[in-house]
């Protein structure tokens, strides 16, 4: 029953979807720069991030803690803390409009309706004093103008869709009466209630146990196949990316360092950081006796402006140019882009 098969054998059900990616661009993010303003310092959380989400694709965003994954998502949704954060540069184009220029009233129509987001901890985004049924129904009412009773029956339907057993009874549950896995299902139900064109999922399974995580990942991928919603899947887990995403962007210290199809990224990573990151995860196929390859040093502080390549202090290939000029994300083969001055040398090394 429970087994893994190699790619040659996998005929039955595919966890990840491998169909060719639609080239229609849904979301176009250009040079996004977001800063946090502290008492004495400025944290440059995003230092110019550019990428596209294509219609109906699953795009993975990976990187270590603090690299800017969540800030990217919150900047797109314009949900950054108002007092301390500001997107100081760039554009987020969606259906020909720059979301960053929209009045808040317009943006509210987009949020939840066209672009929905789910968070790592469902408890903080569900209201503890209302039943989950009422919360889903509210989302449906706001966005579709359905009547209260229609919305309530739609809520039960949505719970069934995310495979919660006994949905008619469960709509009357409060969030605390549900397990973490069930709450995350409720969040997904709410996010999908209005058939968004883009779903941004920020570490939706990080707080869950692996057996529950597997259920939720399967659910997201299945629902995505059925509805055609594009998904931006944020995670720090390379395994989760490999199993769910079609394309991936790798972030480091507030910048995108590499972007590729998932098969390409794992079979021939080019950026020294991506390569090192992949090697530092224990992997049985390399054999157990090996010491894990370490990445020396630590991630640079974002409180100081970074001159040159942000990976230069830890990179074995770094030269003078790396410390002086910031490398731009450039095409490196089909559907593959890398921000590294020495990509060619790195690949042949």
């Amino acid at each position: 029953m429970l087994m893994r098969v190699s790619s040659e054998e996998r005929i039955i059900e595919n966890f990840r979807e491998d169909k060719t990616i639609d080239n229609d661009v849904l979301l176009d993010v250009r040079d996004l720069e977001t800063h946090f303003f502290g008492e004495e310092s400025v944290t440059r959380a995003l230092g110019g991030v550019s990428f596209q989400v294509k219609k109906g694709e699953t795009l993975g965003v990976v990187g270590e803690s603090g690299c800017g994954k969540s800030v990217t998502a919150l900047s797109i949704m314009r949900l950054l803390p108002k007092m301390s954060a500001k997107t100081v540069g760039g554009e987020v184009c969606f259906h020909g409009r720059n979301l960053l220029d929209l009045p808040e009233r317009e943006m509210r129509k987009i949020r939840g309706n066209k672009i929905a987001m789910i968070f790592q901890d469902p408890m903080t985004s569900l209201n503890p004093v209302y039943t989950v049924g009422r919360q889903i129904a509210e989302a449906v009412e706001i966005h579709s103008g359905a009547s209260r009773s229609d919305a309530l029956s739609k809520a039960a339907e949505m719970l069934r869709l995310v495979r919660i057993a006994d949905p008619e009874r469960r709509v009357n549950n409060y969030p605390y009466e549900m397990s973490g896995g069930m709450r995350q299902r409720v969040m997904i139900a709410m996010a999908l209630a209005c058939s968004p064109e883009l779903l941004i999922a920020d570490e939706p399974t990080t707080a869950l146990d692996v057996t529950i995580q597997a259920q939720i990942l399967r659910l997201i991928v299945d629902l995505k196949k059925r509805t055609g919603t594009a998904v931006m899947f944020i995670t720090h887990d390379l395994g989760v990316v490999a199993e769910t995403c079609q394309r991936v962007i790798v972030m480091y210290a507030g910048r995108i360092v590499e972007q590729a199809t998932v098969t390409d990224l794992f079979s021939r990573p080019v950026h020294p950081y991506t390569k090192a990151l992949m090697r530092s995860v224990p992997d049985r196929r390399r054999g157990k006796e090996h010491r894990l390859p370490e990445i020396p040093g630590i991630v640079p502080s974002l409180r100081e402006p970074i001159v040159g390549c942000s990976f230069a202090q830890r990179c074995p290939f770094a030269t003078e140019v790396c410390r002086e000029k910031s490398p731009v994300l450039e095409e490196y083969g089909a559907d593959h882009a890398v921000a590294c001055w020495h990509a060619k040398e790195v690949v042949s090394a």
């Binding site: 429970l2 059900e13 887990d237 199993e243």
Partner: peptide, 20 residues
């Protein structure tokens, strides 16, 4: 068995047949 099968493998050429 379920625990090992559920852990995501960082290799896109592997796929699981059945959700544990």
């Amino acid at each position: 068995e379920a625990l090992i099968a559920a852990a995501p493998v960082p290799d896109p050429t592997y796929a699981r047949l059945e959700v544990p």
